[in-house]
């Protein structure tokens, strides 16, 4: 359901979280970090987050910025002035008191302001791609590059999708030689951890040597 703008304004639903349903964090001692999981609709972002998350995946209804809404549509229709989009996220505590928040951000260009807002302060991004429609990931890669975020590409293998070598995929995605490419099944935990390792290794190569 992520990436599908809903016509409903975000209003507070009544239901309170049930006791025991909320997974709290220790109040101190942890370092929190943000990673962006992005890519076109249906590429497997929510699946990968669900595979990795220690909590049932959550989502927020984010109000779209005014600039993304056509002004002409708004005259006299204030209740239609904002659209919301659901953004999924999950949480993964890594040994060493590090907590990763994985945000599944919609890759469409019209969500760019929201995308930027969520990506601010992120360690890096995982751009997901589907071999049946690699080109759908191009605008997403452009957004990540414009933001200056280090990224790795995870090619999600769907059943019946054509298999390609890494070299072929790199060429079709026009990847810089240093950009990691991993093939994965987002439903598989080891594969999904592997995509995060590839991203973290890449982030490391971009950092200056310690003194």
């Amino acid at each position: 359901m992520d990436s599908v703008p809903s016509p409903e304004p975000a209003t507070a639903p009544a239901a309170e979280p049930r006791p025991g349903q909320v997974r709290y964090l220790p109040a101190t001692g942890q370092t929190l970090m943000k990673l962006i999981i992005t890519g076109p609709f249906g590429v497997g972002k929510t699946t990968l987050i669900r595979t990795l998350s220690e909590i049932p995946t959550l989502h927020t209804e984010e109000v779209m910025t005014r600039s993304s809404v056509g002004h002409d549509d708004l005259k006299g229709l204030p209740e239609k002035a904002t659209t919301t989009v659901a953004v999924d996220f999950g949480r993964l505590t890594v040994p060493g008191d590090l907590v990763l928040y994985l945000f599944g951000t919609p890759g469409q260009e019209r969500f760019f302001p929201l995308w930027q807002d969520i990506a601010r302060g992120a360690l890096g991004a995982l751009v997901m791609a589907d071999t049946r429609r690699l080109a759908d990931s191009f605008p997403v890669m452009d957004m990540v590059e414009e933001e200056g975020l280090p990224y790795a590409v995870a090619v999600n293998r769907f059943p019946g999708a054509p298999a390609h070598s890494d070299d072929t995929l790199r060429k079709h995605l026009d990847l810089a030689p240093q950009t990691p490419l991993v093939q994965c099944d987002a439903r598989n935990r080891r594969d999904s951890i592997g995509t995060l390792i590839a991203l973290a290794e890449h982030v490391l190569t971009r950092l200056p040597e310690d003194d």
Partner: peptide, 24 residues
């Protein structure tokens, strides 16, 4: 041979004008 268009164009620009905009 790659199909990805250059990153210098309008592809990555947000649509619909500057954020903030006018209006309520």
């Amino acid at each position: 041979t790659a199909g990805r268009p250059g990153t210098s164009g309008a592809a990555a620009a947000p649509k619909g004008g500057p954020p903030g905009g006018r209006g309520r």
